[in-house]
Amino acid sequence: MKALYTILLLALSNLFMTFAWYGHLQFKKISWLQGIGLIGVILISWGLAFFEYIFQVPANKIGFRENGGPFSLFELKIIQEVISLTVFTLVAVYIFRTDKLAWNHVVGFLFMVLAVFFIFKKW
């Protein structure tokens, strides 16, 4: 159950992270946000990053093996990276609609799956 909580919290965290890091690139599409300067963009991103951390920190605390969770630090990191790329891809393709998923993206994601395999493999 801790593994599921960890993954769900990481997914929520990455949703906020994606909007904090890349959401401001969509401000030109929203009339009342078009005139916001760099400081405004930074403050909005920091506000979103706050919510990212509300989910990220507990996810790592719950999931970390030395706190009774199922994952090592390396495993937590690779899970986070795969979730991050998955959430980013879904947001870019279906919400921002700025990019299309291409074959080279799929190949890159397959290499990430291989990374997960090798990180979790007990030799």
Rank of each mutant, 00 (worst) to 15 (best):
G35S: 04
A20H: 09
W46H: 11
W46R: 08
I78K: 07
N14D: 13
F74P: 07
A3Y: 12
M112W: 07
F27D: 09
F118E: 09
V41A: 08
N60I: 00
Y53S: 01
V106M: 07
E75N: 07
L114P: 04
M17N: 15
L110S: 05
W103K: 12
Y5R: 07
V87A: 10
M1S: 11
G23C: 02
L101E: 06
F55Q: 09
L25P: 01
Q56D: 15
K29Q: 15
F109Y: 15
L76V: 06
L43K: 14
A49V: 11
F117C: 00
G40N: 03
I119G: 02
L38S: 05
L73D: 13
A49N: 04
W32E: 04
L10W: 06
M1A: 08
F109Q: 05
I39V: 13
R97L: 12
L76W: 07
H105C: 03
D99S: 06
W123R: 14
Q34M: 07
A49H: 11
E75R: 08
H105I: 05
F50S: 14
I62G: 04
Y22H: 13
G37C: 00
T86A: 13
K61E: 12
E66K: 11
L114D: 06
I36G: 02
K2N: 09
G108S: 00
E81K: 04
K77G: 05
F109P: 04
K121F: 04
E66F: 10
L38M: 14
F88P: 05
I78G: 05
V87L: 07
I36C: 02
G40T: 12
A11S: 09
G37A: 00
A49D: 05
A3N: 04
W32A: 00
K100C: 03
S84N: 15
D99P: 00
M1T: 14
L4F: 15
L25Y: 13
L4A: 10
L10E: 06
V91L: 11
A115Y: 03
I30E: 07
V87H: 08
L101F: 14
N14M: 12
F96C: 06
F109H: 03
K28P: 07
T98F: 09
A20W: 11
K61M: 13
V91C: 01
F64Y: 15
F55K: 13
G63M: 10
V87R: 06
V57H: 12
R65C: 00
Y53E: 10
F16T: 01
A102F: 12
I62Q: 02
K2R: 13
A115G: 12
K121M: 05
L76I: 04
L85N: 12
F19P: 05
F120W: 10
V116N: 04
L8T: 13
H105G: 09
A49G: 12
M1R: 12
T18H: 04
I30G: 04
K2V: 07
N14P: 10
F96E: 11
V116L: 15
K122M: 03
F51A: 09
S31Q: 11
L85P: 00
L114Y: 02
T89Q: 03
I39D: 03
M112Q: 08
L15D: 00
A102G: 06
S31E: 14
L110Y: 03
S84Q: 14
H24G: 03
